[in-house]
Design a protein around this nucleic acid. Structure first.
Ligand SMILES: [Mn+2]
Ligand SMILES: [Mn+2]
Ligand SMILES: [Zn+2]
Ligand SMILES: [Zn+2]
Lengths: 142, 142
DNA sequence: TCAACAGTTTAGAATTATTATAATGTAGTT
DNA sequence: AACTACATTATAATAATTCTAAACTGTTGA
């Protein structure tokens, strides 16, 4: 994660116009140390803080979906009531903290390879993902 | 799954009034061979077919959530755009057919026990669930 | 048996998240 | 600078879910 990636070039490469809104979104999404997990609301908040002018909600939705289509973002299902997105687009497992509603990525070494015995005829496996729900262990809490 | 379980008694046991709507819902949900996975829409459709009078949408939502709170139903997250519910309330894994949007339960023997190496300090694991997304293997199809 | 009460259902309004629309603005090209 | 295709915007529309308050019903105990 270099400090100042050339997002303009990156956007051009996949055929998206490097408009200021898209470059701004790239900065917010990818100019960080770790994977970023967010809801549209999180993102809107961060963008409004960062930018001088306001950004339209429709643009945030459109751009997130454009990024998703181009493989820059992945949608994650942990809560049927909210859409979460992930800047880590590879197949990977998650911990979900039920206290803070935060997602945490697992890497290869965190969970042993999943062995699936069941076959469904005529169907191929597209992905295998594990969700580990965690919560505070503290008795006094909650 | 007996043919005509005494749902009235079952409802009383957990402190729910055995109103005709709830008994009717029990029949639709639990009077079947296999686990039932459904969306609110699926359920409304089935109930309207089965019942002579119409049932209010609010009642379906209220009753599903009452059942959920009592541990009769479990909400499943596979698609952030829709709520799925499951009559199998135990911890279990799923296959999700991306062609038909159907959920299929796994049993113990289908997936080897998941070994989690990562520990998060101060947090305990509440559940570990695997989602296997499958789709048609047929080249000609889609 | 039946009135009284608490809990339940209901239709419709309200809220929330998301998508569609159509006018205006802008990046890239000449 | 001007042209054009694509993007952004405000706003309207849609869809899922929840709220509200009035009408209704299962239960209880007189
Ligand atoms: Mn989506
Ligand atoms: Mn829910
Ligand atoms: Zn992730
Ligand atoms: Zn299930």
């Amino acid at each position: 994660m270099p400090k100042n990636c050339n997002f303009i070039e990156k956007l051009r490469e996949v055929g998206l116009r490097p408009t200021k809104q898209r470059v701004e979104m790239c900065e917010v999404l990818y100019n960080r140390e770790k994977t970023f997990h967010f809801t549209i609301n999180d993102l809107v908040k961060l963008l409004s803080e960062k930018m001088n002018q306001k950004i339209s909600l429709a643009t945030v939705y459109n751009t997130v979906h454009a990024f998703e289509k181009k493989g820059y973002l992945k949608e994650i299902s942990i809560d049927s009531h909210k859409s979460y997105f992930d800047t880590n687009t590879s197949a990977h497992h998650h911990f979900f903290d039920e206290d803070t509603h935060e997602l945490i990525d697992c890497d290869e070494s965190d969970i042993d390879k999943i062995n699936i015995r069941k076959k469904i005829t005529g169907k191929k496996i597209n992905s295998v993902e594990v969700l580990v729900r965690v919560a505070s262990d503290n008795q006094t809490q909650k």
